[in-house]
């Protein structure tokens, strides 16, 4: 999936996978922060947005 995105010009860092059990609230928050930081480090995703033309 990551490779496909790269191929299309979408940075790999935009896609995240994780496994969190329902008791791991702390882990959820940590991963949520990680994901957000990783995405914020990139430019906004403008490349692949559907446009009207």
């Amino acid at each position: 999936m990551g490779n496909l995105l790269e191929h299309m010009g979408i940075e790999k860092q935009r896609l995240h996978f994780s496994w969190i059990s329902s008791a791991e609230a702390t882990k959820f928050v940590n991963v949520a922060k990680e994901v957000t930081n990783a995405v914020r480090a990139l430019e906004p995703n403008n490349k692949f947005v559907k446009t009207l033309d």
């Binding site: 896609l15 995703n45 692949f48």
Partner: peptide, 13 residues
Amino acid sequence: AFRQGADGVWVSG
């Protein structure tokens, strides 16, 4: 989701 302009996608099990 990316096509709709999402900046990131997170899949979590």
